[in-house]
Design a protein around this nucleic acid. Structure first.
Lengths: 262, 262
DNA sequence: AAGTGGTCTAGACCACCAC
DNA sequence: TGGTGGTCTAGACCACTTA
């Protein structure tokens, strides 16, 4: 086979490149099995570790996933649309999960979620955006959302404790009309939100919580909800595995048609 | 040292975990050097490959970067804000690069860009969003933007060839008033845009073009620009390395305060 | 020139699970 | 229970780049 030990590229990269090509040109379709490590060592006449290095590279690129003891398989990415704007749209009275449900159940997939409420000293990220003083606490509603029993993403909403004490927000149950409505009822209507997306590899904790395999990055999505006066009253922290989401939103022209920047 | 061969976790994971902890608790600050492979094999009494596997894992998590022959170093993530909304804001007559420049030069960093124009059969992603028939061609303006001489992101704008033939868009130069304005002048004013973000590892090509090291994912940002009639006239394809960008935008309430979804 | 990580080999034992 | 990938060892040679 055409691997050369004197080539510009290391042998393992040449092997990885050949496999990559097979995947891209459709020779190896999503879901199909790659050659085993043993087959590669045989075919290219290299040590097993060399073949392994090639496969490991593909795993870290997110192209391939190992499924012991059946072999390595070409990954099948089928991300679903995730619409941060959705939450500023009016909607009928319905369980808190509605949006998520409406977005995804159309596919015939079974949505589910777990809710957990805690009073915490929030992470620095959140503290800063909520303008919390030292030692000031927050309530967090932590959710993991599932699709067909598989974890899909996490959604942790933080509220300053002093604003939501003794409201429904403190109870680990679905809030039929939405937590934002509860906030509005106690005088903190949100009229603006700031969205930030960080793209990075998951921490081991995140990987565990969401069953994220190697080679799968995440979007770390922060939303800061503000009142008319610009007071932050809510920070949401979402972790969206890249292989399961497409983040989508829509924009409309805000200004007169005098100028349109590229 | 406390690595046990009979532990639940493989030795290399235990080593990785100790290093990870040192990084997170500030013992190893961003920019500082990790122990060398030789030092780790000595300290933990393991084979070099085992120490290496621990370090490689941290590299693939994006925590650490190897800088031969100086050793491994803790990475320093300093992403800049990237605001897709910016382009729908009015702005003064100025070079095409202005937005990018205004966004980033405040930091005292030197922005630059390269432009390249080509007539191509666009990728499927683009073709579909532009509603191009089979064999119908497009013009692409490919840009790489730099900051302090380092590649920062790529920005490829596609236009249906039939719409922009003989316009400035065909010329590989900065368009002072912006390509969108040119489009508007020939009758294709954009009033809406659809944004999609995919989060994934870079392809080897992307990694090369943008000098992306291992363990760094990208956001693949697609913008489809639509006219009043809903005709797509522009598709932009951005590749944003995760270690250099924070994607940010703002939302305002669109509906009456009857309902506020969480 | 020395020391670093990069590559590669050859071999061993093990845990897991589909068949 | 066989075959798979996961882990680990011990050693070798090389390429690079900074000091």
């Amino acid at each position: 086979m055409p691997v050369s030990r004197r080539g510009q590229l290391p042998v393992w990269q040449q092997i990885a490149e050949e496999l990559r090509t097979s995947i891209n040109d459709g020779t190896l379709l999503p879901g199909s099995r790659l050659p085993t490590e043993a087959e590669l060592t045989e075919r290219y006449q290299v040590a097993r570790n060399t073949a392994r290095q090639a496969l490991t590279a593909l795993v870290n690129e997110g192209l391939v996933t190992p499924a012991r003891p059946r072999g390595y398989f070409v990954r099948d990415r089928k991300p679903l649309y995730y619409r941060p704007q959705q939450e500023f749209r009016p909607r009928p009275l319905s369980p808190e999960m509605d949006i998520f449900l409406a977005e995804h159940s159309a596919d015939g997939r079974q949505p589910a979620q777990s809710i957990e409420v805690a009073i915490v000293d929030p992470p620095r990220d959140v503290k800063k955006r909520l303008n919390l003083g030292d030692g000031e606490l927050a309530v967090v509603r932590r959710r993991v959302r599932y699709l067909d029993g598989e974890p899909f993403h996490t959604n942790d909403s933080y509220f300053p404790l002093r604003l939501v004490q003794d409201t429904e927000i403190m109870r680990p149950e679905d809030i039929a009309r939405g937590a934002n409505q509860v906030l509005a009822e106690v005088g903190y209507l949100q009229v603006r939100a700031l969205d930030e997306f960080y793209v990075r590899m998951p921490t081991p904790d995140e990987a565990r919580r969401l069953s994220i395999g190697p080679g799968t990055p995440i979007a770390y999505h922060l939303v800061t909800g503000l009142t008319e006066e610009g007071q932050p009253v809510r920070v949401v922290l979402n972790v969206l595995p890249g292989d399961r989401h497409v983040i989508a939103f829509e924009r409309t022209r805000v200004a007169l048609p005098t100028q349109a920047a590229e």
